[in-house]
Every structure is written in C-alpha cells, then in structure tokens.
C-alpha cells in the first residue's frame, strides 16, 4: 500500500488524481467519521460533515506542503468543521442533548454490546456537558490515542494547552460522576 506522501505527490503532479484521492479517503475515512460522530451523535450529520471535510481536502490538497502529517491536517479540518457545525446548530437554537441520550440508548440496545447501563448513560451525559474543545481533545486522547503534540497541532494550541484541556476534561467528568 502506498504511503500518504506518495499518494499526495502523485495527486499534486496530476497523476490519476481521482484514484489517488480515493486511496487517501479509503485509508482515513473511518477515523475521521468516528471522531465526528462521537461529537455530533447523528449519522446524517456526521456523514455531511465528513463530506465537507473531504471536499476541503480535495480543494486544498494541491497546496499541502507536507510540513505536518496528512492525518494531523485532516483531523484539524475535521475539528474546525465539526465545531462550526455545532456552533451553527446552537445559533439555530436546536437542542439535541436530551434526544442524543435516547439515540445513544437505542443504538446501544440494537448493537451486540451489553444493554446501556447507568454508568454508560452517566459517561455519555458527562462527555456531553464538556465544552466542545475539551470533548474533542478528550476523544482524540482517549479513543484515538493521539499524543499531546498531535492534539496541539490539530486544535491549534500549544502542547501545554492541549494537556490542560485534557486534564480539565477529566476533572469535570470526575466532578460530574461525584455529583450524580
């Protein structure tokens, strides 16, 4: 399998642009989709945001200088698009927090996973009450297992800032668990 760098170089040299781009999409689509879905909880929304992310990548890939890893750049665009989407939803006044939990319970009961327990609902509620940036950092750190350096470049902060965000997220989750 070709590396990201090889695929991007060929794309930039206009060699089989569509095929090389499709290869990139196939390699990274699942990670991007899951990260977005963890934030928005709805498949249609996650699909729409993921498409917007990849369209941006298509439009800007010619100018990508490979100074950072492709995946970091990709997650950065996904991060911005997701936060924009959430902000737009908030402006429009849609409040989906209560339905999110129901959705979560429904999806959990349809899967092979054990039925949603109290702690799972608590976890879901706890994550939802975090500010979006902290949510994103928490998920990148815990579920994607990215290091702070990568998280910092994705979220456009310093390594210290990323660490602080993560630890604040954990503290808030701890407080939430103790309170409830």
């Amino acid at each position: 399998m070709q590396s990201d760098q090889e695929l991007i170089l060929q794309f930039q040299q206009s060699i089989q642009r569509e095929q090389n781009f499709t290869q990139l999409v196939k390699k990274h689509q699942a990670k991007v989709y899951h990260q977005i879905k963890r934030m928005v909880n709805d498949h249609d929304d996650a699909d729409d945001i993921a498409q917007m992310v990849w369209i941006k990548i298509w439009n800007k890939l010619d100018g990508f200088k490979m100074e950072s890893e492709f995946s970091t750049w990709l997650f950065r665009i996904a991060y911005n698009e997701t936060l924009n989407f959430i902000a737009k939803q908030k402006r429009q006044g849609s409040n989906t927090s209560s339905t999110d939990i129901l959705d979560y319970e429904n999806t959990a009961s349809h899967t092979d996973a054990p039925k949603s327990s109290e702690i799972q609902i608590k976890l879901d509620q706890g994550i939802k009450q975090l500010p979006e940036k902290q949510q994103f950092v928490f998920m990148l750190r815990y579920f994607e297992e990215l290091n702070y350096e990568k998280i910092a470049s994705i979220t456009g902060t310093t390594i210290g800032g990323a660490k602080a965000n993560y630890h604040q997220a954990i503290k808030k989750l701890e407080e939430f668990v103790k309170k409830s």
């Binding site: 879905k37 899967t111 799972q120 579920f143 668990v177």
Partner: peptide, 15 residues
C-alpha cells in the same frame, strides 16, 4: 472514573 466496558461501549455506539 468509568468502567473500561462503559468506555468501550460508548465508542462502539459512535462507530
């Protein structure tokens, strides 16, 4: 804070 199982299930629902 949360059980490993709860976290895994949370991620499973997202995926």
């Amino acid at each position: 804070l949360f059980s490993k199982e709860a976290l895994a299930n949370y991620d499973k629902s997202a995926s």
